[in-house]
Design a protein around this nucleic acid. Sequence first.
DNA 1: CATGAATGAGCTTTCATTCAT
DNA 2: AATGAATGAAAGCTCATTCAT
Lengths: 212, 212, 212, 212
Amino acid sequence: MASGTKNNDKKDRILDAAVRVFARNGFFNSKVSEIAKEANVADGTIYLYFKSKDDILISLFEEKMSQIILQMTENLRGVSDPREKLRICIRTHLEIMKENHDLAVVITVELRQSAKFMKEYDNRPFSRYLKILSDILQEGKQSRVFRADLTPGMLARALFGMLDELSLWLVMGAAKNKVDWNKAHKELTEFFLRAVSPGEPTQQENSVPDSR
Amino acid sequence: MASGTKNNDKKDRILDAAVRVFARNGFFNSKVSEIAKEANVADGTIYLYFKSKDDILISLFEEKMSQIILQMTENLRGVSDPREKLRICIRTHLEIMKENHDLAVVITVELRQSAKFMKEYDNRPFSRYLKILSDILQEGKQSRVFRADLTPGMLARALFGMLDELSLWLVMGAAKNKVDWNKAHKELTEFFLRAVSPGEPTQQENSVPDSR
Amino acid sequence: MASGTKNNDKKDRILDAAVRVFARNGFFNSKVSEIAKEANVADGTIYLYFKSKDDILISLFEEKMSQIILQMTENLRGVSDPREKLRICIRTHLEIMKENHDLAVVITVELRQSAKFMKEYDNRPFSRYLKILSDILQEGKQSRVFRADLTPGMLARALFGMLDELSLWLVMGAAKNKVDWNKAHKELTEFFLRAVSPGEPTQQENSVPDSR
Amino acid sequence: MASGTKNNDKKDRILDAAVRVFARNGFFNSKVSEIAKEANVADGTIYLYFKSKDDILISLFEEKMSQIILQMTENLRGVSDPREKLRICIRTHLEIMKENHDLAVVITVELRQSAKFMKEYDNRPFSRYLKILSDILQEGKQSRVFRADLTPGMLARALFGMLDELSLWLVMGAAKNKVDWNKAHKELTEFFLRAVSPGEPTQQENSVPDSR
DNA sequence: CATGAATGAGCTTTCATTCAT
DNA sequence: AATGAATGAAAGCTCATTCAT
């Protein structure tokens, strides 16, 4: 049993080291040997657990995104109001990122990078993440809690964009105080819920802009 | 005249080639020699116009972001309603990205990457871009067209995040139809204007969640 | 034991290869890859033992000059007469150079080159070498075996210049016979000892040149 | 006539610039473009006067060494005593080097380097220089002013080695005072003349070394 | 399983040289 | 003759990956 967990031990140590190193230097500027040193293993050992440097990044996503999704799913358990659900999603995302700066940087920065070089890999965990958001929106739409004219898939993406960008911003302003995170949380929630709630439409740009 | 433009010609040719190549492979996987070939110049020629490979990326931002800002400023000229101004910003951003897929990918993906290696360089053009959005929000806030409790700096960033993420999404869905861009445009505008307009606040998460 | 010497083995193999290659082409015309091939290691291996190409040259001096100094010190052991000491120095220098043509060329040629790029490094081993000669001269001066009016530091340098130039000359006349080395040895010794021995001064140039 | 000297003007300007630049950086670290800038000509212009970068160095020797030889020959005119002749040679060599530090560095350092890459070119001017010294020694030997057992060719080389090494030493000790040059001059002359003058032989090493 | 010395392909950058003007 | 922008070969160095121990 001890040896059974050892493996995971070592694999996790490598992944944890990788998050730190990638966050510090970016994926491309990180050396495998630096990850090895940070994880207290030999260079070659890394290749017992990962096929390649790329594979470390991919596994990192799989692992960490799965954790995020797990956490989110857990937090959503028993909640039925779509508006509340959205609040929870926003809070969970920001909390996780706040808790783990390095992870935030890697997810945020390298996820984009990976949009390229992982084209084929198509990033299932990320899709599942988006699906959670998009399902909530769909659900609220059907129960008339949200506007009828919104496109769940697109807005899910928009919401992620907002969360992601703000996380990066907050994380980058390293020494900044806790207040910002709370404020961001409150404001984003308010902002998003207003945007998806039913009510008077705004004037459409194409229809007589700047009229009267 | 021809010789007068020669220099700019060549520098621009290199920059244009770089956008294409970076979009194709990402910055780190792009070889200077590939840019040179794409620009129909010799490898060494690139170093007559740029100090290094990094400098190409930086110049690219400076140049292209400046163009975007210029375009945006131009489109905003003569408009005074902050809501209309926001509509214009959103439209301009999406239009430019739609027009130039490669540029969108590079700005979108590599800007993040650069969040690292350009930390010192601090990205003036991007700051100016954000300032435009943030100024509009501030303005609308003061003239009571927008909610009094919004934080312009943060929302500007959130808006950029949305636009950026959706651009990436639309651009990546390469073969997708034109409709998506229009739909995205309309929906985003509606979405954002609702969110910033004054009106009944939504229930705050902490106050009796899940209540009526 | 075998594995204990492995490291030194490889480092020495590289240094030995470097002497040969530098002697053949000169430092600047020598390619690292050529050294690698000559040492039967991969290009990259060299950088496990040396920081840079420059570092190879510097290490070479440190190593080889130290050997020369060691040899010289050993040969001088137990000898007290300064004149005999000088004879031994001259013999040792010429013998080592004769024994190792490549080393002679590198020391002789590149030491000068290095006078430039090693200005900061200031070449301790070479200084130690000069000090040996200069100490002997000083000693002989004090014991009245040598002239009272000689300047040890300067003459040490002059002696080195002679030895170095003659070594180069002899080494360059590659196919030349052994006799030359012996003759050079005898003549130089005689020459130098005469020059430093006390006795009637020669007429000084400024005092009635071309007189009588 | 004006245009007739223009050419030489420009060629000389390039050579003068080259001495300065080579002295500053060494031959291999000097860029043709730097020489061009220092000479106030375009890069391409250099190739109207010289076949290659190597050719600049070779021409430099030809030119400058010829000047040295010319000067020496001139100073020797009318002098018949071989001892006085040697005094003059030593003085001339040191004076020229003292006068022109850059030239000294280049001759001194790069002449060695060239010993390699000019192997084929075989350096006639340098040979002529050595012949002057060697002829004087031969002459003095025949007229019994110098020892009968000296080898002119070898001693000429040794003398050059001494002069060269001391020049380098004095030149390198940049800020040093004028006195050093004078002292070096006096001491070297005394030293060399003693060494070549007839008189009691010193004990030979092989004959009873360390004896009474 | 673990190691880390060794590998070598591949990159950025430099710079002597050319040639259209 | 003079220019200097353009060329492109060439080389130092890095680092992901392998494999003998």
